[in-house]
Write a protein that binds this DNA or RNA. Structure first.
Lengths: 255, 255
DNA sequence: ACCTGAACACCGTTCAAGT
DNA sequence: ACCTGAACACCGTTCAAGT
């Protein structure tokens, strides 16, 4: 059944399973030290500052020594994305809807603190112990509501994806996007103004109206906390409707 | 009001506004040609195949000639992400809910055909004429439902983000993720097996149960079309609830 | 077994020079 | 005005050599 698969060594190391050497000199570094160093650099300088050389120098070895612990730079990024995640909040005793909101908000806060996660988090399925713990707690919070396991996982994906989307939007609209740094477009105000100048109302009738109506003017009209709550409630309403549907199906004996 | 901002030249060019030269030799290339070449390379070899050198050689110039049309490689990626988008479906005459579903599904299909968009699409706010056209049509489809402009834009973000999330999941689970290419993890089956081997049921009780219950076994239990529909309906139910709320508020005179 | 150092192929970007 | 070619600083990754 659950037959042994040979995992990438870096995954083994994420789970704390060192390859039990016991011959030759003692290792001077390990994966947690490497990942921490990389995370510190990314926090300070962003992802472009993270190179094999910069990470190695911060950890005190030659660049090539890192390849004993990670197979490639991409693996290093994956490890960073797991090590940076703290413990999830505990669902015990909370109504499912409260917990889901708390969980999504916490995910969002992590992303806000480490925005370099945005381009990484998307492409990697969770294989690290910390990310998987978050998934576990979300599934637990949905226990006993009549959803099957696949549905619960889908809910988790939707929530996690929503947090990502939201932070990507905030990052853009609130400034700090490298792409617009020196173009004068550094916030929602500027973005709206630029759009107003570009849009021909005949080709873009609805969008022109929205922009001219001020939908993008002012930071509080775009991707602030209320907007996050808005989309979140949208999703939670959807989950609630699903749970209600499953409950009524259960009474008459659904699938 | 809408005061003139100096836009990055590449944005001007995305909108077809060439800087009207009329002196010296006729340009041999333009932004659409560059973007098309880059898109073809990305479709064939993925994003790693796209370098200034490879794009330039395909378009028939020296690598450095591209800097007359894009300020940096990042700008080239942004341009690619706009040029690759086709015309959106037209909302005229469709019920809003049908159109939103169609729109999200079409976005998803674009991403499936050009998966290299995943890491790009997240970080760039739409400034190109093609992406903005999609936004316009979605706003139009939500006209007259009692939502304000900010809410409509939020709905658009949620839908677009959902399509991204879903394709990221499919890309992972369905194989083809470079990261797992040669590790034996090449699909939902393998992913579930790996997880089963890693998870201690005492630390990950809910997730262990889900995995052992087969939630991740078989491609049809993970990120297939039914799963896309599932999350989509979740969101649309949320939108419907919001519309109903606004309608009832309207009767008593809400904000 | 662990790490170093030299080396390789490649990358994005600059700038002066040609036409 | 448009493009080229040389050059620069840097990058990820390899491999043989040291201890």
């Amino acid at each position: 059944m659950t037959q042994e698969r040979s995992l990438p060594p870096v995954v083994e190391r994420m789970w704390g399973r060192e390859p039990v050497p016991r011959r030759g000199p003692r290792p001077r570094i390990d994966l947690p030290a490497i990942a921490s160093a990389a995370i510190e650099i990314a926090d300070a300088e962003g992802l472009p500052g993270v190179s094999m050389a910069s990470v190695a120098s911060r950890v005190g070895v030659a660049a090539t020594a890192l390849y004993r612990y990670v197979g490639s730079k991409e693996e290093l990024l994956t490890a960073m994305a797991d090590f940076v995640v703290p413990e999830p909040p505990e669902p015990a005793g909370r109504p499912w809807r409260d917990y889901l909101a708390l969980w999504a908000r916490a995910q969002r806060d992590i992303l806000l603190e480490h925005r370099w996660l945005l381009p990484i988090a998307r492409l990697t399925p969770p294989l690290g112990p910390r990310r998987l713990l978050w998934l576990d707690r979300l599934l637990a919070a949905l226990d006993g509501m009549g959803l099957d396991e696949g549905e619960k996982i889908n809910v988790a994906s939707s929530l996690a994806g929503y947090a990502l989307t939201d932070v990507a939007l905030v990052t853009t609209a609130g400034g700090g996007d490298a792409q617009f740094e020196d173009t004068g477009i550094d916030g929602a105000d500027a973005y709206g103004e630029v759009l107003a100048g570009l849009l021909d109302p005949r080709t873009y009738p609805a969008l022109s109206a929205a922009v001219r109506g001020g939908a993008l003017r002012g930071a509080e009209g775009w991707a602030d906390d209320d907007d996050f709550r808005f989309g979140l409630e949208l999703l939670l309403d959807g989950v609630e409707a699903l749970i209600a549907r499953r409950a009524s199906e259960g009474e008459v004996g659904g699938k």
